[in-house]
């Protein structure tokens, strides 16, 4: 599938850009279509029995009190939160992977996961809080940790490599603290904490929907402006500096956007693993190895999370799994398949 495009790259640059954009737009809309279809299906499916007609009636404002509770107050926020955090994680991962030029980089490298988890766990097991305090704890943990990592790494310019190393150090300290809180917690708390730490969309409400939508509403305009710098940065430090000047400032702005997106998504749904890592990789390979624009990655992220949550709810029903337990099982085979199939990645990937 790639041969024609590759040839074209060399022949006529303009035509290829157009073809890639068309291809990327097509892929994006297809992925979003799948994601939205799954999302609507998710409103009607679950442990509480509802026929399609009932679901539609409830969405139209009818139905019993309990049916309304199940569809509108329980399933709807979870589905919307899922779509939003999927997109947010994926965009965040795509930005960071391109800045660091390292496919293993995802927001957890700059401490978002560890910070949010530590904050949330502190609220849960020490203060006994839940709800808004849990969200705040996670958000504060994620943002403070990322800020600390960037500040510590900011030593005569922002070196991607140093950033990664500092991230490793801080994340190790925090995950030790998390293990400590988990090991000393009582058995029943551990069950609840384990679920949050896996990343879960259970019991989400207006608060969580608001957070993730605000995050996206802020990030999208910023990225429309800064997006073009991503391609320049990818050429490497030296070239980028010549082309755009002030790379450190642009990098900081992009990293900040990525961190805020991931932090708010984590606050809303916990550290759902692997989406930030795999969604950009999948779209990159579906787009024949060209650098990904952020749109397709966002769509892939939304689709992955929505699909994973549906599986998580139905697979072992009536027992429900947190969505994070499934994203790896669903996302990894896709990546592995693409890896195994693409025989060019020895060079391009």
């Amino acid at each position: 599938m790639t041969a024609k495009d590759t040839v074209a790259v060399r022949v006529a640059r303009g035509a290829v850009v157009f073809r890639l954009q068309r291809r990327s737009a097509l892929l994006t809309s297809m992925l979003w279509l799948c994601a939205l279809t799954l999302a609507v299906a998710a409103l009607g499916l679950g442990e509480f029995d509802l026929r399609l007609a009932d679901t539609l009636r409830v969405l139209g404002g009818g139905g019993t009190l309990i049916e309304y509770d199940v569809v509108v107050r329980d399933r709807l926020p979870r589905v919307v939160t899922g779509l939003g955090v999927g997109a947010a994680f994926a965009v965040s991962g795509a930005i960071l992977q391109r800045i660091a030029a390292n496919p293993l980089v995802s927001p957890d490298v700059i401490g978002v996961n560890a910070g949010a988890s530590f904050g949330a766990l502190l609220v849960m097991t020490v203060a006994g809080g839940a709800g808004a305090s849990l969200v705040l704890g996670a958000l504060a943990g994620a943002l403070l940790t990322s800020a600390a990592i960037v500040l510590i790494a900011l030593n005569r310019g922002l070196n991607g490599y140093r950033l990664v190393l500092v991230g490793i150090g801080i994340a190790a300290m925090l995950s030790s603290a998390i293990s400590y809180l988990l090991v000393r917690a009582d058995y029943h708390q551990v069950l609840s904490a384990a679920s949050w730490l896996t990343g879960s969309l259970a019991n989400r409400g207006t608060l969580h929907v608001t957070i993730v939508l605000v995050a996206l509403a802020v990030a999208v305009p910023v990225l429309l402006v800064l997006g073009r710098h991503l391609r320049i940065l990818e050429l490497g430090d030296d070239l980028a500096r010549t082309l755009s000047g002030g790379t450190t400032r642009v990098r900081l702005a992009l990293i900040t956007t990525a961190v805020v997106l991931a932090a708010m998504a984590t606050a809303a749904a916990g550290p759902i693993g692997f989406i930030a890592l795999v969604a950009p990789q999948i779209t990159r390979r579906l787009l024949a190895g060209r650098p990904v624009t952020l749109g397709p990655a966002a769509a892939a992220g939304a689709l992955l999370v929505t699909g994973a949550d549906l599986v998580a709810r139905l697979l072992f029903a009536p027992t429900e799994l947190p969505v994070g337990a499934v994203t790896g099982v669903l996302g990894a085979p896709v990546l592995l398949y693409l890896l195994a199939r693409a025989n060019r990645i020895g060079h391009t990937g």
Partner: peptide
């Protein structure tokens, strides 16, 4: 990448068993 993918997949399976 293969390592990261397998780690995520197997890690998920571990989580499922424990949950």
């Amino acid at each position: 990448l293969a390592g990261a993918a397998l780690t995520a997949m197997v890690g998920s399976m571990t989580t499922i068993v424990t949950l």
